[in-house]
Amino acid sequence: MNDYSNPWKVLAEKKIYDNPWIKLNEYDVINPSGGKGIYGKVFFKNLAIGALPLDEELNTYLVGQYRFTIDQYSWEIPEGGGAFGVEPVESAKRELLEETGLVAEEWSQLIELHLSNSVTDEHALIFLARKLSQQMAHPEETEQLIIKKLPFEEAYQMVERGEITDGMSVAAILKVKLMLADGRIS
């Protein structure tokens, strides 16, 4: 029989940092082995939202941008934050339109993830967007984006070659590859 109860004991909690997007707390803890220590936890104030657009010819769209946090250029599916209390698919629709100018008639949840769960509570929902039409993109002022339309298979090969490293993008592309392979989508 497995015991799935929480083996951690929190002795004290201290707020370290807080801004509109994240907060950081430090905890004095007794770890599962009985040793005293500290643990830091980053709390996210939004859901991580992604949308993988896939048109009728099995093309997809990637967003390229320089990521401040990793100090390098990154190719990704359209993604961003979704406010708690807003339907996640509505946030995905907003992100897709904002970053690519695309509007989709069909939406389905593709995958749910916890991102870097060793130090954060960040929770991600990624959607598959189908039946696409093009409108005008409206990126945020913090985004300098390049949009790339390409065959989905090419995006998959970019994952295979290590050219796409964003966790949400990798997970979404691999999931769609499996769904195409077993006929769940065509």
Rank of each mutant, 00 (worst) to 15 (best):
80 G>V: 09
170 V>Y: 12
125 L>E: 14
163 E>C: 03
135 Q>I: 01
71 D>M: 06
58 L>G: 01
77 I>N: 05
93 K>M: 08
74 S>P: 00
138 H>M: 10
81 G>M: 05
154 E>Q: 08
136 M>Y: 01
148 K>S: 10
162 G>C: 08
147 I>W: 04
149 K>F: 01
103 V>R: 13
103 V>A: 03
139 P>M: 03
158 M>D: 06
158 M>E: 06
58 L>N: 10
143 E>Y: 10
147 I>Y: 02
118 S>T: 12
73 Y>K: 09
97 L>T: 06
99 E>I: 03
106 E>T: 08
96 L>R: 01
153 E>A: 14
59 N>C: 07
153 E>N: 06
172 A>V: 14
107 W>T: 05
72 Q>H: 09
157 Q>F: 06
164 I>F: 11
133 S>W: 04
133 S>D: 07
137 A>T: 03
106 E>P: 02
111 I>D: 08
72 Q>F: 00
85 G>P: 01
65 Q>W: 11
126 I>Y: 14
88 P>F: 00
66 Y>T: 05
108 S>C: 08
99 E>Q: 14
142 T>I: 08
153 E>R: 13
147 I>M: 04
57 E>Y: 06
118 S>M: 05
75 W>C: 04
175 K>A: 12
104 A>H: 07
111 I>P: 02
119 V>W: 14
73 Y>Q: 07
80 G>E: 05
97 L>D: 03
94 R>I: 04
115 L>R: 13
84 F>C: 04
121 D>H: 11
170 V>T: 10
142 T>A: 06
152 F>L: 07
84 F>Q: 04
69 T>D: 15
153 E>W: 09
80 G>P: 03
102 L>A: 08
172 A>N: 08
172 A>G: 11
57 E>A: 13
54 L>K: 05
103 V>Q: 11
130 R>A: 06
63 V>W: 09
160 E>K: 15
63 V>Y: 05
77 I>P: 02
72 Q>E: 13
86 V>A: 03
166 D>H: 15
108 S>H: 07
